[in-house]
Design a protein around this nucleic acid. Structure first.
Lengths: 362, 362
DNA sequence: CTGAAAGCGCTAACAA
DNA sequence: TTGTTAGCGCTTTCAG
């Protein structure tokens, strides 16, 4: 019975189980698929008769036609998509960056494909591979290390990309990063102003630009402010994690190093400090002051609220996306690198050192 | 000069500017592209002579062949990709869920394509559309509202999906959600045990299952513990945000409602309470106790550390991914819905009410 | 301005 | 076991 068609009935167009294709639209509009394609694509619409074009568009609308981006990609080798390579999405730093990127990409008709490398270079390579095989038109990369063969290779292969947060040692890849050096100087200045003379630094991974730049800037700032530039005051953190920050601080304390304030490599390191304060019964800021870096969400609600160098994360993302789109639109454009200005957000994790605690009552 | 080829030189294979295709591999291996395809696909490899297969694979390896997933998708209408629909990535709830999903999907050869709806139904529809046109094989949806025409439509269209966190009113879509009712009961039980008699609730959006279920469970729990089930104790929050939580609490206080504890709809609402406590000089937990919901990252470091109902987020993601993969592999499989068990994490935002503060010394 | 034809790279009948 | 053929849905020369 199914499939019967009585003589008198017209061969009605059945509701398609399969979504309508360009051919369906073309047939219905009485034109060749090529014409339909031209009519439907804003960029080529001018090549076609106005009336024909609007008829095609009307038919497309009525059929609920949606172009198949896969077929289009296969033909054009483009995808209106960019890849976003993140080391660790659970770091609350990244969501605002992602938001900034999407807000710029969206209106331009682009989408972002987000991948999480988990800080694992092998995983990173395979994910980037998969991104490339999906024809992403460019990459926004937040995983740069100073020495980063994969990125050099991509660069050599002509892959369009923009680095965010961190950079590579050779600076010919466009980047959008915070002005780390100035940020650290502000932190040191703030602590020096409070009267601290011996300030420790939890230095982030030295294979990242952020880790290295911040450490250098820290020691430079100590000298600029005439403070003790004692190498023992710098403790290395092998990762950008709470755990690494905690471990580094424990080492510092256990080694008997004297200090009254800490400039943490980032907010997670500062969180690690809070753990150690709890463990050892240290009072912050009475015994030790701490400054974080990034001003990540919710740290204003910590105990005590963390003083931190604020990075405009949303803007980092937005600016990187703009830069990438610019580069995509005009490949001859010169690689720029942008340093975004930072501000110090003073909260209650910093105060004058005990010796000068009297000033606190002012 | 470029393009010259001196007579004596062999026509060496140039390094391809264009990545090698299946045809290149086939030619090099002396087989037909179809054979190469079969040899390279583990699922069809058995159809081909072992020697031939390994030769093809060797050639593919040496050429650095990478199959083009776009072409494959176009042909097969599949993509080894699932869409992940998130209301707001800046909510730190989601990163662990994403991680759980990726960890299950990855080993199965699948990728996740993540989109952010910003809680905007129009945006959601267009993003889901774009996901579908990219041939995602299924959807993991974290944006469900009780009445959700789009999801009903998808369901009717036969789109495979799994809801997480929230559900729709008609429960025929598989889901992985926290056991909200039990979680709320634990919160109330905890507060009742501390001696609280008048407990307020910041109720999340009533168009979401979480908002509604938690509110109902709250009132049920009040009755179960013989506490005041006063309607005035429930304040509505139109969104799951800090701001909404703060506003609701201000309303409650300004209306002169008496209470000594709050069960927040989620942790963000609880954060909003902290803002109000600060504003109004209210001491937590001395004046008012608060219990959050979700146990999101870092709330253990708040001031005071927040007591919260812990949701196993990573597991929510992992379980949803498993469920979706199961459904993909065997479409006849019956839709299950899973409630994940919760635990109460007691911290310092809850204590006996002032009237019974003596007990605190025990 | 429109149509014809070819092909992006791959896979899945079907045939041999 | 392998090759032949066709085509997924679209765009883009090239003619007309």
């Amino acid at each position: 019975m199914a499939g019967d068609r009585k003589g008198g009935e017209p061969a009605v167009t059945l509701l398609p189980v399969r979504p309508p294709t360009l051919r369906d639209v073309a047939r219905e509009a009485g034109v060749h698929p090529a014409t339909a394609s031209r009519a439907l694509n804003p960029a080529t619409r001018s090549l076609v008769n106005g009336e024909t074009a609007s008829r095609v568009m009307r038919v497309a609308e009525s059929l609920g036609y949606r172009p198949n981006p896969i077929a289009r990609s296969l033909k054009t080798s483009r995808s209106a998509t960019v890849g976003l390579v993140i080391p660790d999405l659970t770091n609350p730093l990244f969501p605002p960056i992602v938001r900034g990127i999407e807000d710029v990409l969206g209106p331009a008709g682009y989408n972002a494909w987000l991948v999480n490398t988990d800080n694992d270079p092998a995983r990173e390579e395979s994910l980037v591979d998969s991104l490339r095989s999906r024809q992403v038109e460019g990459l926004i990369v937040a995983t740069a290390r100073l020495e980063h063969p994969l990125l050099d290779q991509l660069r050599a292969d002509g892959v369009r990309m923009v680095l965010i947060n961190r950079r590579t040692a050779n600076s010919d890849i466009p980047s959008v990063t915070p002005d780390d050096a100035t940020g650290i100087a502000m932190a040191v200045s703030h602590l020096a102003g409070l009267g601290h003379r011996r300030i420790a630094h939890l230095a982030g991974p030295q294979n990242t630009s952020t880790g290295k730049v911040r450490q250098r800037a820290f020691r430079q700032a100590l000298r600029d402010y005439g403070l003790d530039d004692d190498p023992a005051l710098v403790a290395d953190c092998p990762t950008w994690s709470e755990q690494a920050g905690a471990a580094a601080l424990r080492d510092l304390i256990d080694a008997g190093v004297e200090f009254t304030a800490i400039v943490a490599g980032n907010d997670l390191h500062a969180l690690g400090c809070y753990d150690v304060f709890m463990e050892r019964g240290i009072s912050c800021p009475d015994d030790i002051s701490v400054v974080g870096f990034n001003d990540m969400p919710y740290i204003d609600k910590l105990r005590p609220p963390l003083t931190s160098v604020r990075v405009p994360h949303y803007e980092v993302g937005a600016e990187a996306a703009r830069m990438l789109l610019d580069g995509l639109a005009d490949p001859t454009r010169h690689a720029r690198s942008v340093l975004l200005p930072l501000t110090l957000v003073q909260r209650q994790s910093t105060a004058p050192p005990r010796q000068t605690a009297l000033r606190q009552t002012v």
